[in-house]
Design a protein around this nucleic acid. Structure first.
Lengths: 354, 354
DNA sequence: GCGCTTTCTGAAAGCGTTTTCCCTCAGAGG
DNA sequence: CCTCTGAGGGAAAACGCTTTCAGAAAGCGC
């Protein structure tokens, strides 16, 4: 607009002119791609400094058909689960000198697809998708349709905890095994009356954790009646509401498994509000081991996932040279961390008491 | 590399050719900048769809000298404080159709400056700096030197909670007033023996909160002896260590103020570990009102900051047309939220007891 | 002194868009 | 029937870089 206000950026051309060399030499001197006589290199450097030259990344990307940005798509950076994974991704990016474009879908599938498209336009070197896919099969298909040409054009895609229908490299939490191990531990404590607070049933994250948990119960001859399974969104409020609903139904299990820690946090609040003591009245366990659950009282028993490491690994996976058509899958975590939120059931329940 | 593997992106040229129009028309048809005959527009659209055309954002940015990316620099996305603000920024970005490039400095000043440089190269429309600056005056100066030509070239800069030495638009938490109000509330409860767990003293966030707190105590004739002030990093561990140090010194205040909630979380853990009950033995208060402090038991008394809104506002500030040379400052938050982590001091302390 | 490498350097051709400038053509007005 | 206007379309010039392709200069053995 006004004359003085915007002062254009110095271009490489200006640098070259000032250093008394050609454009090509200036480019080479600055990038060090080819040998350039030392004195010329110095002159160019000096000229660049004096002019405050900052290369135009867009021009570079356009000319060299390469760039060092990656896209990170998650549902909600405010959620500690995603924040922890994003942190890992950021660490990996810093190490590899990559710039991360972050996108939060706010759990709207349309937004996710739009972001993939945007990242394609940016010619991002890789796209990282974090978190469970959407219930709707249609969306998952649309997403795959958007991703496929990207991959064909040389883009890399890697995901954390997505539905396997996307045939891409993936970091998968040890959902089934972890949930089984947790069930085992809870059974060992003497619990027989379980309830589960869970997310949208069509997500593999949910179904795997549920299946693992159930399988282990079944092995011990314990069943999980449908009225003891409450669905809700993967949020604190979801957990809160689900726990309230459970209590409102008059269900009094000795142990509640929330399929994510975030839901467990909500459940804990609900229990507290209703005067249900944890673990004396009800034992509570979660999944993920987000940092905050250690700070609760009682600290939450959960299945640990190395979230930051998972973030780093998904980046590594995306950057690794593809070896073939088969997608690589890295399973991580799954260890039970016993904390004070679980205890043996009270003796008025007709099971052995330790 | 291999022949089949990479399949180049369709270009606008290809779209134009297929639609039987010129490059210019194709561009206009897709962007809708000028009127284009309806049938041609359709033909272009169809051709673009068939070819799976995705415009090259770099070429667009280069040609139009504009783009819609903004840079977000924070210390650590994994920290709930930054995560919450980042969430607000993401919301604002989604609304305005901006792409956010995220950078975590991991609290290394050099990295921060490098990121500003990178974002300048990307010709980001705005740069958002979140969180306290670094102690070292040299770094702050270097940062300003990097930012200044960016602003002169038309870039926008806005910060949350940075040192005022950066003359840019800013969202500032009501540090002083909030801390004063908190002190007032604690005094009203009857406390006279205070301790403070605090961060690096050169940060204004720290000094303002400390000053506000102190001023209010002074007004009540209460002093804060230096041995009751413990410094540490702005992390959970910092709070933990500081609290341990305080106890190790044999100090037994009736009330502890941690200048950030994250530190308070660490302090709470330390107290619990040492058998110090909160609030019976020591009242504990924090600052920020990060979501997790509501889940603690006891829930933490704190000074509320609307973190997500602050993230939204800093974006709004960065995007707003500059009105003049004066930088705009938006003060937000500062209300005391009383929760169960504070209580009147026990009567064995020689003060009035409520 | 001659031809032959070996280094560097410079000119220029892209990269994929947007945008300016100009031309054409239809329709309105006389 | 002719001119004027305005709308729409095409050619080509940017945008700021990288990289190819030659050419110049310098070093070398004979």
């Amino acid at each position: 607009m006004s004359e003085l206000e915007s002062q254009a950026h110095a271009t490489l051309d200006a640098v070259a002119r000032r250093a008394g060399v050609s454009l090509a030499t200036a480019s080479r001197a600055l990038n060090g791609t080819t040998r350039v006589r030392e004195d010329l290199r110095c002159r160019v450097r000096a000229a660049a400094d004096q002019l405050g030259y900052i290369p135009n990344a867009h021009a570079q990307a356009l000319a060299s058909a390469s760039n060092n940005t990656v896209g990170l798509i998650c549902h909600d950076v405010g959620d500690p689960y995603f924040a922890a994974i994003a942190d890992g991704v950021m660490r990996a990016a810093a190490e590899k000198d990559l710039l991360v474009m972050l996108a939060s879908t706010f759990r709207e599938p349309a937004r996710e697809i739009a972001y993939v498209s945007t990242l394609r336009a940016q010619r991002a070197r890789a796209i990282l998708l974090i978190g469970s896919g959407f219930q709707d099969r249609t969306w998952e298909r649309a997403l795959a349709a958007e991703l496929e040409p990207y991959v064909r054009a040389g883009g890399r895609v890697a995901v954390v905890s997505r539905h396997r229908s996307l045939r891409v490299d993936a970091v998968l939490p040890e959902n089934r095994g972890g949930a089984s191990a947790l069930a085992r531990a809870l059974l060992d404590l003497g619990h027989r009356e379980f309830a589960v607070l869970t997310g949208p049933p069509s997500l593999t994250t949910v179904s795997d954790r549920l299946a693992g948990f159930r399988a282990e119960l079944a092995r011990a001859g314990v069943t999980l009646p449908p009225e003891r399974i409450v669905h809700g969104p993967f949020t604190r409020e979801g957990g809160y509401t689900a726990a309230r609903a459970l209590l409102a139904r008059g269900e009094r299990p000795t142990c509640v498994f929330a399929v994510t820690d975030v839901m467990a946090v909500g459940a804990l609040a609900a229990f507290r509000e209703q005067g249900v003591r944890v673990p004396e009245d009800i034992s509570l366990a979660g999944f993920d081991d987000i940092p905050l659950v250690r700070e609760l009282s009682p600290p939450l028993t959960t299945v640990a996932l190395p979230l930051t490491a998972m973030g780093q690994e998904v980046m590594a996976l995306a950057l690794r040279e593809p070896r073939g058509p088969r997608s690589r899958v890295l399973r991580m975590g799954g260890e039970v961390v016993l904390r004070a939120s679980v205890a043996p059931p009270l003796c008025d329940v007709p099971v052995r008491c330790q």
